[in-house]
Amino acid sequence: MKNEWPLWEVFIRSQHGLAHRHVGSLHAPDATMAINNARDVYTRRNEGTSIWVVKSVDITASHPDDKAELFDPAQSKVYRHPTFFPMPDDVKGL
């Protein structure tokens, strides 16, 4: 039976203000059950305030062979990193 259920990727937001994070995947026949299953599989230890699910087949991924041209050019651009500013100690969540 399970082989007939499509795969879903699950994203959980742990606290208000933080982004949804990918936590894993599961099988479910449709979106409603994917949400229910995600609740049961991934929020058992009080992890969540919000759940997103998306069918795995609907995700378009970059190709591993493109790594060099996609990512290597960013390596030599140290000036793009915001590391030249002193951060006040009181600023949290950075």
């Binding site: 039976m1 259920w5 229910n36 299953n37 049961d40």
Partner: peptide
């Protein structure tokens, strides 16, 4: 359970 997800849901 009939599937891992159902197994977890039942035991939850």
């Amino acid at each position: 359970g009939p599937a891992l997800e159902e197994d977890m849901a039942l035991t939850n």
